[in-house]
Amino acid sequence: MVGCYTSGIASLLLPNGRTAHSRFKIPLNIIENFVCNIKPGSPQAILLLKAKLIIWDEAPMVSRYCYEALDKCLGDIIRCSLTYNKDLPLGEKVVVLGGDFRQIFSVILRGSRQDIVHSTVNSSYLWKFCQVLKLTKNMRLSVGMTALDQDETEEFGEWLLKVGDSLIGDNMDARTILAPTLDIVEEVNNHLMAIIPGGEKLYLSSYSICMDEGNVESQLDLYGSELLNSINCFGLPPHKLILKVGIPVMLLRNIDQSSGLCKGTRLQVRKLGNHVIEYEVLTGNNVGHIALIPRMNMVSTNETVPVRFQRRQFLIIVSFSMIINKSQGQTLFHVGLYLPKLVFTHGQLYVALSRVKSKRGLKVLLMNHVKMSANSTINIIYREVFEKIIF
């Protein structure tokens, strides 16, 4: 069996769990007709050749091109087999895709609604080979549920499904830790950092232009340090990183999977050194593990950045708050949802509201939006995605 998750933090839920991109060597910036970087005869190819079952969780969250890349790769690996049937997909393997189409889909940079819907797995040529099976029990809500909580929990579960199907609205007051965009998350983090007692330490990054950009000297003249240091985009640590002992942070890249140090892992700062920082792991199976992490190099892959450059910095961000997309796959005891701006894509509101086990663990703070009535917000659902799926 081969098991994998779409998100890094979710992969920590399985012993020796891996992300799909790591396990199948799928390119990060994938487009149509890309293939997995697995060579026939390699250990990775031998593992896939022997596998009888592949389990891939959070399937709707990843682009259809990832599954199609795996289909082409498995076809190449198994093509030499005497029993190979080219009319069957995914190398004739049994593949179980888990996930909820009410949740957030793959992020398409500057993509329209049509682009996002087209990228989902049920828009792939592979979908005609899929059999849809329904899970009807919300396991997140049932864990630790008492007889006294049963009615309230069942009511909350039904309400969440109606939110996910865009069949209901509700009014709530509150405060927050989840937000729809990075700028709002940064605003919350900066506010909480300012009121936390203790001395702070500033870490500045260094940078270099990637050598594959051709004439490096002309690039340096065109893009100076002031511009490159000001770039702050998703997945890249900031140039100015301000930390205090005791604050929570989140890893931006996989560092040591065996120790639970994966992308999305939350840590608590214990000691601030000049060259390394000591952390305690707060999530996953390695809770309480102490880790020393140095500065590392990270190359920007964001298409909106005008030049590819390498930033050397601690691969973390302050994490009092996080974006809704990053919370997908996690179960939390208490969630506050802060919406000074409206959610902007399919499933965001549903994901944020469904991170908790009960309605009592959920608080929402809504700002007054233009043309919106008091105590209400928009819920974006792409109903056409549900056309081939019967809930």
Rank of each mutant, 00 (worst) to 15 (best):
P197K: 12
I30N: 05
S42M: 03
R295A: 04
Y338D: 08
Q150T: 13
G91T: 05
S319P: 01
C262A: 14
L353S: 00
Q219N: 10
I177P: 00
D170P: 00
S206C: 10
C66R: 06
L292S: 11
M367G: 12
I168T: 15
L167D: 15
E186N: 15
Y207K: 04
R311E: 05
G169N: 15
L339C: 02
L148M: 11
L342V: 13
F333C: 05
L141R: 08
S208I: 10
L135W: 09
V216P: 01
E200G: 09
H346C: 08
V35H: 04
I255H: 04
Q328D: 03
Y65C: 11
K326F: 00
L53A: 06
P89S: 13
C233F: 02
I290A: 02
G99Y: 12
A352M: 08
P89G: 07
L109E: 14
Q257T: 14
A69E: 10
Q103N: 03
R312H: 10
E387I: 13
Y338W: 14
T176R: 06
P60Q: 11
N375H: 13
T120G: 12
G75E: 09
Y338N: 09
K244W: 07
S376H: 12
S106P: 07
E217G: 00
Q114C: 05
V121P: 00
H346D: 11
C210Y: 08
I247E: 11
A69T: 07
V216R: 14
I77Y: 04
S142G: 00
G91M: 06
Y65H: 15
R113K: 15
S230R: 09
G284E: 03
L227P: 01
K263R: 13
V117W: 05
C73I: 08
L82K: 13
L267W: 07
L342W: 02
I290K: 09
C210I: 08
V305M: 02
V276P: 00
L282P: 00
T146A: 03
L14H: 06
A59T: 04
M145D: 06
G214S: 12
G41P: 02
Y203E: 07
Q268P: 00
G260Q: 07
E278A: 07
R253H: 08
L178R: 11
E303K: 13
Y382D: 13
K93M: 06
Y207R: 02
V307F: 07
P306E: 14
L362D: 04
L74W: 08
L167I: 08
L90Q: 03
P43A: 11
H334W: 03
L133A: 04
L222E: 15
E152L: 08
L135A: 06
Y279Q: 01
S205A: 15
Y125F: 14
P294G: 10
F320T: 11
L339M: 02
G8I: 05
Y203A: 05
V269W: 05
P238C: 11
S225L: 10
L133R: 08
R18V: 01
A174I: 08
E158N: 12
I196W: 04
S81I: 00
V2A: 07
I255T: 03
Q114E: 15
P238W: 09
V95C: 09
D212E: 14
K39T: 12
L251E: 02
D212L: 07
T304M: 09
P197S: 14
Q268H: 02
R312S: 14
